[in-house]
């Protein structure tokens, strides 16, 4: 029987998008000792991201994947990070995250969230996905929940607070959602997913 640390060390997690969710989820998983992360984003760090994303002022203007690799290495150099500086589509998601035990959906746009959840559920069985809907705004901490929609889909969020309806995004509330997400992933890795060979 593998110990919790061993299970996490042997685990591979895909992180799709490195904004407020992804940059924080990746950091939490690296701190937990997850062995390998496959991260993907096509964006650059902007000054406006620093209100909630896990980047630093001196990283503005550089690719998010590059900065995330750098930050994760400073947190835990034992984590293997496979970085993809590209836009994710229904065409490249299955191959890019083929090795992942679980995928974290960390996109911003609703249509992209839909795309990757649909793609993982329809074409990547038995891989689970942990997705987020509803994290904008402030306060209402306890409205953000973790729900198991079906065996392979876990949904975080309050289900309704979008950036289209809420006046603000905060590191505090986005961080609650990101921590729910990382925590749900750790639970899956420890309790449900059979560790691959070391």
């Amino acid at each position: 029987m593998a110990s919790i640390d061993e299970k996490l060390r042997r685990a591979v997690v895909g992180v799709a998008g490195l904004g407020g969710l992804g940059s924080n989820v990746a950091a939490a998983l690296a701190r937990a000792g997850v062995g390998r992360l496959i991260i993907a984003d096509f964006d650059m760090v902007e000054a406006a991201n620093l209100n909630r994303q896990q980047y630093f002022l001196d990283q503005v203007g550089r690719p998010k994947v590059e900065c995330t690799v750098e930050n994760l290495r400073r947190i835990n150099p034992a984590v293997l990070v496979e970085a993809h500086n590209e836009r994710l589509t229904a065409a490249n998601v299955p191959e890019l995250f083929a090795a992942a035990d679980v995928v974290a959906e960390c996109f911003d746009r609703a249509q992209e969230k839909q795309m990757i959840v649909e793609t993982v559920l329809a074409r990547m069985s038995p891989k689970p996905i942990v997705s987020v809907s509803g994290l904008a705004g402030y306060g209402k901490s306890n409205a953000i929940t973790t729900r198991r929609i079906s065996p392979r889909l876990i949904l975080i969020g309050d289900g309704q607070s979008g950036i289209d309806t809420e006046p603000i995004l905060t590191a505090a509330r986005v961080g609650i959602a990101a921590s729910h997400q990382a925590n749900a992933i750790i639970e899956l890795l420890v309790d449900e997913i059979k560790a691959s060979a070391p």
Binding site: G17, G19, G20, L21, G22, C106, F107, D108, R109, A110, Q111, K113, Q114, V117, S131, V132, S133, G134, L135, A136, I149, S150, L153, L155, G157, G159, Q160, S161, G162, I163, D164, T165, E166, L169, V174
Partner: peptide, 10 residues
């Protein structure tokens, strides 16, 4: 039927 509706933000 399960319907998961996504709102933007992440």
């Amino acid at each position: 039927i399960e319907l998961v509706r996504f709102v933007p933000g992440g």
